Computed example of a mutant assay.
Amino acid sequence: MSNFVMEIKKNSIYLVLLLPFLLAVMALNGFGFFFKSGSAGAGILIVLWLWFRQLKARKDVWMIFVAFAFSIGGDWFMSNRNGDMDMFISGIALFFVAHIGYLGYALLNGKVKWTFTAIVLAGYLVFFTCKLLPSINHGVLMFAALVYLIISCLSMGAAVGIDAKPAEKWSYVFGIFLVLFSDTIIAFSEFAGYTELNFLILPTYYLAHISVTFSLIARKISYNPVIE
């Protein structure tokens, strides 16, 4: 088999990303929670398929399963809260665990870039103090939002510190950035009353899952160019 044909065969695996993409499009057009959870759910299935034979030895891949599964759970609480503060806090808690998954994956493949993390965290602490804190009058919510902000910045710093080939690394970094970006818009909307950017929340959230899944496909290809 020529190198050209092998390259086409190898890269054709990325076509599986059409599944989470189509589910995300359905979700954005008003379909139910099954489709809203589709980008993360399809990501789990794709990663499971690609890494099934190596799962026992791949603690990092399990971290992505945790991240995607708890993202689905957090999204369910957020989608069904109907103004219930406890549901909102529960959603934040589940998304916090999702970030532990993202952070764990990055740390198992690299290390935290502390200077970068400190800069990002400092900026978000200013944002929290000036924009969010004055609008939060619920102690538990304030604590939950602050802890979530910290873990989000750590996830971002760890993503930048991944030791991997460019396609794998920067697609993962982009995915975590999109999670952080989506969460920032939610914070503006929920606590600062700024809703003009709300239309970007779900597209960036779904694209984050797709980008992270892309990264794990790229990682699999780098280990085994012929997908079994």
Results as ranks from 00 to 15, higher is better:
Ile150Phe: 07
Lys165Met: 14
Tyr172Leu: 14
Gly157Val: 11
Ala192Cys: 07
Ala167Cys: 02
Ile162Asp: 00
Ile150Val: 15
Leu200Asn: 07
Gly175Cys: 06
Leu180Ile: 10
Phe177Ala: 13
Thr213Lys: 08
Ala187Gly: 15
Ile221Leu: 15
Thr204Asp: 04
Ala167Asp: 02
Phe191Val: 07
Tyr206Val: 04
Ala208Val: 11
His209Cys: 05
Ser152Asp: 12
Gly157Met: 13
Leu154Glu: 00
Asp183Phe: 13
Tyr194Ala: 12
Ala208Tyr: 11
Val212Glu: 01
Pro203Arg: 10
Tyr205Ser: 03
Ile186Trp: 04
Lys165Glu: 15
Lys220Glu: 12
Gly157Ala: 10
Met156Cys: 14
Pro203Glu: 06
Leu154Arg: 07
Ile176Ser: 00
Lys165Ile: 08
Ser222Met: 07
Tyr194Glu: 13
Phe188Val: 06
Val160Asn: 06
Gly161Thr: 08
Thr184Asn: 11
Phe181His: 07
Gly175Asn: 11
Asp163Ser: 15
Arg219Leu: 12
His209Leu: 00
Ile186Ala: 00
Phe191Thr: 02
Phe188Leu: 15
Trp170Leu: 03
Leu202Phe: 14
Arg219Cys: 03
Ile217Tyr: 07
Pro166Arg: 12
Met156Gln: 14
Thr204Cys: 12
Arg219Met: 12
Ala164Thr: 06
Ala167Trp: 12
Ala208Asn: 08
Pro166Lys: 15
Phe174Val: 14
Val173Gly: 04
Ser211Phe: 14
